[in-house]
């Protein structure tokens, strides 16, 4: 219980940071996008709570705006992956036979592959060749979410399939079938509600995975492009400045750490309760 609460508290903190980012920027009177070359690598002070980056932009407000990217990518990926994964898992459990075999071999194949090298390759694709605008923050996020969902559904699907198999073999499902309940209603009313707990665990882990993957891709320069701040690209900038401003590397990583710890705690808490 304490895990769940601590995790939810951390995530709530993050949501507040993301929602209040523009307001907070107003309070401190800093524009996270406006460069100020006189304040390059400014040390932490009353004016710049966490210091300033290589263009003299305020790190604190950029960190808050980074929460929007991380949470946006994490939640969108987890939502899409959960819907897709639950559908695939339930389909595999319900149809069985060759459908089950094909879907689960596909899941096994995706799990066996090294994900990050493939993500790097996919993230380097040119959206312009697919007719999408290039370099916009929103399309960047959509691109990253799409790529992450390609791998993200697997974990959800395996848990959903296992849960659905148990439920489909239970007496109340047999009773419902004997009463002449249609298969669609059976899946919707009797199978899906029983999957809430495993899917919640898998989704929480998917949020953590997506936040980490987004920050890695942005760190490598393949994710969210500057000037939009993301914790990953802030860390990439900070690595360039390990001599000039070593502290700048501390905060974005700490933010990622708290976000991932929050999701892991929630997943742990739900699976234990």
């Amino acid at each position: 219980m304490i895990r769940l609460r601590l995790g939810l508290f951390l995530l709530a903190l993050l949501v507040v940071a993301a929602v209040l980012a523009p307001l907070a920027a107003g309070w401190v009177g800093k524009d996270p996008f406006a460069p100020d070359l006189f304040a390059r690598y400014a040390p932490p002070s009353a004016d710049y709570p966490l210091g300033a980056d290589e263009l003299g932009r305020d790190l604190f407000t950029r960190l808050l705006y980074g929460a929007r990217v991380s949470l946006g990518v994490g939640l969108a990926t987890a939502l899409a992956a959960s819907v897709l994964g639950t559908a695939i898992g339930v389909l595999a459990a319900w149809r069985g036979g060759w459908v089950d075999a094909v879907l689960m071999r596909l899941a096994d194949g995706l799990l066996a592959l090294p994900a990050l090298p493939i993500l790097v390759l996919l993230a380097a694709m040119d959206p312009a060749k697919l007719g999408l605008p290039r370099g916009e923050a929103a399309t960047d996020m959509l691109r990253i979410v799409t790529i992450l969902v390609l791998f993200g559904w697997v974990g959800v699907a395996r848990l959903a399939r296992a849960g659905a198999l148990t439920i489909l073999a239970s007496d109340y499902v047999r009773a419902a079938r004997a009463l002449g309940v249609t298969e669609a209603r059976l899946l919707w009313r009797h199978v899906l509600p029983g999957l809430a707990s495993p899917v919640a665990v898998a989704s929480a882990l998917a949020v953590a995975g997506a936040i980490l993957a987004e920050s890695v891709l942005s760190f490598l320069g393949l994710g969210i492009q500057p000037p939009t701040p993301s914790w990953g690209n802030m860390l990439a900038n900070a690595q360039e400045a390990v001599f000039a401003a070593p502290l700048a590397a501390l905060w974005p990583g700490l933010a990622i750490l708290l976000a991932i710890a929050g999701c892991t705690l929630v997943a742990d808490g739900v699976s234990r309760s």
Partner: peptide
């Protein structure tokens, strides 16, 4: 588990 390796 939660520490991102590139940050470390």
């Amino acid at each position: 588990q939660a520490v991102p390796s590139f940050w470390l």
